Computed example of a mutant assay.
Amino acid sequence: MKQGYYQSPAGLVMVISQNNKIINISFILACPLFSSLSKEIKQCLQEIAQYFINQRKIFSFDYVLNTTKFSQKVLEATKQIPYGEARTYSDIAKMINHPLAARTVGSALKRNPLAISIPCHRVINKNSKRINYLYGVEIKLALLAWEGVI
């Protein structure tokens, strides 16, 4: 089975297919699903919701980074970028004492497992001509605009 979601004006729609045929279209109701979630997922979803209503700028839920030590350094440095600000890949490379590793920083950020909470969307190129983001340029620009960076 495969699932897809669409945020409609009427609510979140879930579509399920099996053997390349649609078998279910339904609305996802937040309360019943939310109440059955684990404590850590509830907290994470609450914090993400707070972020999107301007009530949270720093995330506090517990997490683990199952990445290389270099990537962990990159991600932890990226987490230090304040809300509403941006840094370059070179800035992050300097923060982790690898000043010539800007491209490698970019590669590590492509594998960021904690979007939004580790704000790789706040990392931009020096010349701002080329914008990359794992989830697409539109989402990166929307997050930067949301935070008032652009």
Results as ranks from 00 to 15, higher is better:
1 M>I: 14
1 M>F: 09
1 M>R: 13
2 K>T: 10
7 Q>H: 13
8 S>H: 10
9 P>V: 00
9 P>I: 01
9 P>Y: 06
10 A>H: 11
11 G>Y: 05
12 L>I: 14
13 V>Q: 02
15 V>G: 03
21 K>N: 11
22 I>N: 15
23 I>Q: 10
23 I>C: 09
23 I>G: 06
25 I>E: 07
28 I>T: 11
28 I>P: 11
29 L>G: 00
30 A>Q: 14
30 A>T: 13
31 C>R: 10
32 P>C: 04
32 P>W: 03
45 L>D: 07
47 E>G: 00
48 I>T: 04
51 Y>Q: 11
51 Y>T: 10
51 Y>G: 04
52 F>H: 15
53 I>G: 03
53 I>T: 04
56 R>H: 12
56 R>D: 13
61 F>N: 00
61 F>Y: 03
68 T>I: 08
76 E>C: 01
77 A>L: 03
77 A>C: 03
77 A>E: 00
77 A>S: 08
78 T>I: 09
82 P>G: 03
83 Y>L: 05
84 G>W: 05
86 A>M: 14
88 T>M: 09
89 Y>G: 02
90 S>H: 10
91 D>Y: 08
92 I>Y: 01
95 M>P: 05
95 M>C: 12
95 M>H: 14
96 I>H: 03
103 R>C: 03
104 T>Q: 14
105 V>W: 04
110 K>Q: 10
110 K>W: 12
111 R>Y: 11
112 N>L: 07
112 N>V: 03
113 P>N: 08
113 P>I: 08
116 I>T: 01
117 S>G: 04
117 S>D: 02
118 I>Y: 06
119 P>N: 08
121 H>S: 02
122 R>M: 02
122 R>C: 01
123 V>D: 02
126 K>F: 07
126 K>L: 08
126 K>T: 12
128 S>D: 14
131 I>T: 02
131 I>H: 01
135 Y>L: 11
135 Y>F: 14
136 G>E: 02
138 E>F: 10
139 I>E: 01
139 I>C: 04
142 A>C: 06
144 L>D: 02
145 A>H: 09
146 W>C: 12
146 W>F: 15
146 W>R: 09
146 W>E: 06
147 E>V: 07
148 G>M: 09
